[in-house]
Nucleic acid binder design. Sequence first.
DNA 1: CAGTGGTCTAGACCACTGC
DNA 2: CAGTGGTCTAGACCACTGT
Lengths: 251, 251
Amino acid sequence: MTGRRDNEKMVLRLDGAGPLYAQIRRAIAAPIISGTWRPGAAIPFERDLCVRFSASRMTVSRALTLLADEGLIVRTRRKGSFVAPQVSHHASFEIVDVCDEVQSDGGHYGYELLKKEIANGSAVNLGDKALHLLCRHSRDQHPVLLEERWIDLAAAPEAGDQDFSIERPTPWLLHHVPWTRAEHQMSAINLVTPNAALLALEPGVACLVLERRTWRDQTPVTYVKNTYAGPSHRLIGRFEPAKGDSGRSKG
Amino acid sequence: MTGRRDNEKMVLRLDGAGPLYAQIRRAIAAPIISGTWRPGAAIPFERDLCVRFSASRMTVSRALTLLADEGLIVRTRRKGSFVAPQVSHHASFEIVDVCDEVQSDGGHYGYELLKKEIANGSAVNLGDKALHLLCRHSRDQHPVLLEERWIDLAAAPEAGDQDFSIERPTPWLLHHVPWTRAEHQMSAINLVTPNAALLALEPGVACLVLERRTWRDQTPVTYVKNTYAGPSHRLIGRFEPAKGDSGRSKG
DNA sequence: CAGTGGTCTAGACCACTGC
DNA sequence: CAGTGGTCTAGACCACTGT
């Protein structure tokens, strides 16, 4: 009775390499990635896959959970699992703290608070009362990052009393206002006059910009716009098909 | 005998929200994110956490596996689990196929092959014989992406016979040479003369560049440099602390 | 209300690693 | 060789959802 989908001709073969859940994951990922299974195609039910692979349901479920996290499949109770409507690549970028990055290379890390004022945060989708900070981070006296930050004073009232000329906003926020959700945006901009001078670069130079918006539960806490010095700055990300594979890339 | 680490004062409390493994994950993530547990600090052993949380080892292990995947902890057999030396943010960016992106907005998608030649791929870390393609993708007749691609002909000899003037390289490669590993780099560049014209933009305009290098097992297969038209193009990524949380962001 | 995925348990054995 | 994490099983119950 459960064999409805078994009529489809499917070559699901284990390669014998690594843990069983990883093999099952690859066996199902292969026809999806290669396009053999079209978006929307039904994937055999978990309990059928258990029989086919001689595995327990936990193991099969683990493989399918990985695939769902990667965005290759969608799972719905009662209906079953299906190939995701739009199979996309996921690249996970590691966003390291500037201070850590500079010091891990053996460089001298510098921090300056350039501006601190109370401002209306509505321009950056925060509340009326927000703390606006402008910070410069440097490596061996050379500016590497300009940090424009807004902190919602309704969400983090203690921020108003904090002296940010020595304590950096990022670790302070982590300690005092742990967030629960963040959203990142990356873009490229041509440097304009005020910021160009602060980064010791010519106006017009292309720079990588990383914006981050952070929530605590449902309330927005902070918005930050990080402008990295120079076009050469790069974010390196590794694709993660390896989740559950033998050669897993770790940090 | 296993209580060595239990001497540390630790407030690990479950919040009762959602699945148990997610609660355990949050309970351990909280003191790490807030900085209460410094990098390198020892995390209680799995079997101790089972007792503390009245959970099975599978459930505790699931929570710790999530934390390890997020980069918050590192786990070593025989030694135990520890707070990661450098707690970093991970942002997962979804890299959608241009064609899908344009068409999902209801736009008209266009594709042109501008150049096709055999070239030496050593400049981009590929083999001597490589196929070099230059493709332009457009939305409603406006160029949105310039794709410079190299395909290693040793890894994918069939590529030499393929007519890429209609079939796009991306789906073709997916079908014929499934990769197993990919590495992404994002950067910002100032457009230079040949490419500026092809994207119908002025030279000097800042553009977002996404480079992807792809391997099949250990052999490099293809390298692609995608230049997105205009500074306004953005990659949006959602942070994923929610893995195993109730409100999971999906696609 | 039937059937799917989602979670959980109480065991078990293995692999690796430091002593 | 002892003890950790890594994996796996054979059950079980629950939550959700379409009919």
